[in-house]
């Protein structure tokens, strides 16, 4: 049985890698035969050498660290604010009526449009962090509200029988039942934050970070390093998303065993 699964997986793997490998080979031979000029577009080995160079110099790790710290700050601020907004809208009808219209109106604005405004309100690092926070806030708020809305009525009725107050109703019913949905919001919020940190570093440049590094490499036409940056950004984004998904699975299992 296992052998069959392994065979099927192997077949899938081979089928899936044909195209990427072919593209790499074509790229390699086109550069080797000088059909692609090395000055206008680097060869795969140029990219590899570029990677080794910035890795040894520590440039890549240094900028990556700046971006990760920046994204953590923005995400933490945005997610916390989003969670509070979500809980308020979900728990109180008055708050819902007061906040929802403003929240929905502001949500219509594509986030890049806020960048020039933020630059004037606060200079440099706070404006980048705030930019990320705005983006991280929406998915967390929306998913939290959705999570609260989908809690079964019986739970609240049981809570009423036990005469739960607001705080106990939140701690015993709302928080645990809506958290899986919030966690989905956190995952989406984190990937939006990672998208926006790159955007923030391009829009509000010269503060370091992987996006800033990529932008500087564009200005000096170092395409090999631009490609290194793109791959790094993609890998980090993938890892973040993967870890958050694992967290969701662990949490849902933990809930089932309780």
């Amino acid at each position: 049985m296992n052998a069959i699964i392994d065979k099927a997986m192997l077949k899938r793997f081979v089928e899936g890698s044909i195209l990427p490998v072919m593209l790499l080979l074509i790229w390699y031979f086109l550069s080797k035969a000088r059909i692609i000029d090395a000055l206008t577009f680097p060869s795969p080995s140029d990219v590899l050498n570029g990677f080794l160079k910035v890795w040894k110099e520590g440039l890549l790790a240094e900028n990556l660290l700046i971006s990760i710290i920046r994204v953590s700050k923005g995400f933490l601020i945005g997610a916390s604010v989003g969670y509070v907004i979500g809980i308020m809208i979900g728990m109180s009808r008055i708050a819902e009526k007061m906040i929802s219209p403003v929240f929905n109106a502001v949500r219509q604005v594509p986030i890049p449009a806020f960048a020039p405004l933020l630059v004037l309100v606060s200079i440099g690092e706070p404006s980048r962090v705030l930019f990320i926070a705005i983006g991280a806030c929406y998915p967390v708020a929306l998913n939290t509200v959705e999570g609260i809305r989908s809690i079964r009525k019986e739970y609240f009725e049981v809570g009423n029988v036990f005469r739960f107050g607001r705080i106990r109703r939140f701690l015993k019913i709302i928080l645990p039942s809506s958290f899986p949905s919030t966690l989905t919001g956190l995952r989406i919020g984190l990937s939006v934050s990672w998208l926006l940190v790159v955007a923030a570093e391009i829009f509000i440049s010269s503060g370091g970070g992987i996006g800033d590094m990529m932008w500087a490499c564009r200005e000096t036409s170092n395409i090999d390093l631009v490609i290194v940056c793109i791959v790094t950004i993609a890998l980090v984004g993938f890892t973040m998303n993967y870890l958050m998904q694992k967290l969701e699975i662990i949490f849902s299992k933990w809930r089932l065993t309780r």
């Binding site: 899936g16 890698s17 990427p20 990937s191 998208l195 391009i202 996006g211 993609a234």
Partner: peptide
């Protein structure tokens, strides 16, 4: 089956990561 892995890896790049390139 042939395209999925390639497309998934391209989709990992956040949109604004493509800008300089």
């Amino acid at each position: 089956r042939a395209l999925t892995p390639l497309l998934i890896s391209f989709n990992q790049v956040p949109l604004f990561g493509w800008v300089p390139f």
